[in-house]
Design a binder for these strands. Structure first.
Lengths: 214, 214, 214, 214
DNA sequence: GATGAATGAGGGTTCATTCAT
DNA sequence: TATGAATGAACCCTCATTCAT
């Protein structure tokens, strides 16, 4: 069964069966993300997913083996593509400040401002209970992201843009504010909104400038 | 497995009713932390909590109104005390590097190496579904921690220990690696262990030294 | 596994529509027998029947009204023909021992060693839940078989081949070991294989010879 | 948990918890036999079992692991005890006609006229799908019954009560009419009632007297 | 006719909560 | 106060049947 048709399905009553099927599959994934985000994986009800997607309950099982497979597929199809973009950006020869600023912009626009933010939070909050998801996410996202960041940092050090190797040893320190931003949105936004773009800029400044007075 | 009974009442045949009751309450809380950590709030079963605590299922309801109240009480009694220590440390007049290093040590020893790490992860992973818990945590932990960190940073700026105000505007940047450490342990430890103490030291170095070459 | 297609239409590209349709119908019946035998009527899935028959699920409904009608048709088309042969054998004037031995041979070769054994077991095991099937089976098989056996026994008594009328009053006693053989195969074969042909010969000996010493 | 209390539970409002629990367990077993007999194992609904037993659906799961375990327990507790009686009868030194007549009476009174008839039919009709049940039934009932019958027949031969060894080689031939009687009741009773006691007497006559004229 | 995606009622099982003992 | 058997609502998943293509 072709899942990613590539060609955008024709819109309207002229859709073929394959297009309709793919559209339903997408609707189910979108609805599942909504429900999983709102209630958590365990508490989300497939009844609600089906209703939100506008399909019957049984239809979900035509596209996904079970509830867990639905979650996995969500992660796989939504988060996989991201890393490629990140790797390309990281492979460039631009100054590190430019690259990090690009990362921050991409994070804000492609993750933080989109449904991917909820999905990322889901991975963070549910991943421990789903070894397959944690592993996929580690192999496909985290590991590659860390490698790309490390290479970037090492190039910057070689060029003299950075003085010490803390970021090369722990590239997690570069990404940590992104993680915090995602969690903050879900937990504390209503108490204290966070200007994420500004925080990331401040973070880049910190990483790249002298933090201590003479 | 050693149960974290906190200040558990002395065990023995000489306990009064009140002591016994308090001990049971503590046992239930400890068992609940185990089960919630292992399976998540929704999937944890009170049957298992009761068995682990060595009490009957009904006994849980003598001490806590329902499953959610049990979770709230866990957060309230276990995380509240921490912040006081943090505030005291933050209020000192020591050099900021000394204070941050103290924070890091305290984090590693009092949180990361203890059951509180699991509890903190629970708050992070389940908080969005429990507004009361998110609010308690924000008011009692996050807000106070942020205020303490901000005061600390501002004193450091005033003293000339820090050059710019990024950390004063976003004290989250100081704590972000701690959050990442807690999550990493649950998600990716088996793929790539993380030397948390080293990462926190590296982070402090970054925050406090010149990051960029001349 | 050889599908019992009975008088299946010739296979080949020259088949007309009618032949193809009849072939599909036969394939469905054969597949249904496989699945019903293996899992029982209630637990058998039409999905599996369709797959085994090499047709789409919907096609089953072009040939049979519903799952139950499929079962009925199976019994009707597969077991009906048998009795005619049995009646002919029973109507002969040969000595009763010859006729009973003929029955036994026919049972072993035409039922016990074929798919009809499974079908007979299905009737026995599922018949109680399908009044229409029980009735068809009674009218078309059991009643006629009993009548034929009774006539046979009465002729034998009239000729002096048999002394008392037990078998005339209860022809079931003649057939009982056949029933046991069919059930034994499904239930206990793996614990204790049964030599059915030998058992039937022994049974005929018992029925026709002196059982008690003087 | 003690299941077979031995002591008959006190009747009335003074029953203890254990008695009440045992009574519920029995009620569930009785209700399950009703429903399984009426609809077959697969089609029987635990909802109906619970309602018939006067308990909530969940209560079934306090006493039995799942639907299949309920069926197994039914067979185990209801059919196990029977064989002991049969073995004792078979071990006697009475004339074989007396013993077989005793078997027939016991069969009619203790099985055919009771709920055990339905249970026996269930084993016959569902056993093939439940290997554990078929095995239990073979080991605990069939194997022992066959051994007892064979010993009985061999004693009769040694004493000169029987002339040939057909029944020693295939003791199934002794029991076959009982199997047929059980099945007939479920399948054809409404078309042609069967006088089972008379049939069994006729069968014994056949086995023990001369079947063929001089 | 043939297909197979879609439907949705139905049922086994779980588990938070209650309450008689 | 403590127990744990009982409850019953809730939910995942299956599968006979339908129908647009």
């Amino acid at each position: 069964m072709a899942r990613l048709t590539g060609d955008a399905p024709a819109v309207g009553h002229a859709q073929g069966r394959a297009q309709k099927s793919a559209a339903r599959r997408e609707a189910i994934l979108a609805a599942a993300l909504d429900e999983f985000s709102a209630r958590g994986f365990a508490a989300a009800r497939l009844d609600d997913v089906a209703e939100r997607a506008g399909v019957a309950k049984g239809t979900i099982y035509l596209h996904f083996q079970d509830k867990e497979a639905l979650f996995q597929e969500l992660v796989r199809t939504r988060l996989g593509p991201l890393v490629t973009a990140l790797e390309q950006l990281g492979a460039s020869d631009l100054p590190i400040r430019t690259v990090l600023t690009g990362f921050a912009d991409m994070f804000v626009q492609e993750i933080y401002a989109t449904r991917r933010r909820d999905l990322a939070r889901l991975v963070i909050t549910e991943g421990a209970r789903f070894p397959a998801i944690a592993e996929f996410y580690y192999r496909e996202v985290v590991e590659r992201a860390i490698a790309a960041l490390r290479a970037l940092v090492e190039r910057a050090i070689a060029r003299g843009e950075l003085r010490h190797d803390a970021l090369a040893r722990f590239p997690q320190l570069i990404a940590a504010p992104g993680v915090v931003a995602i969690l903050w949105a879900g937990l504390f936004e209503r108490f204290a909104p966070l200007d994420v773009a500004a925080m990331l800029r401040a973070h880049i400044d910190l990483l790249l400038s002298e933090g201590r007075a003479r």
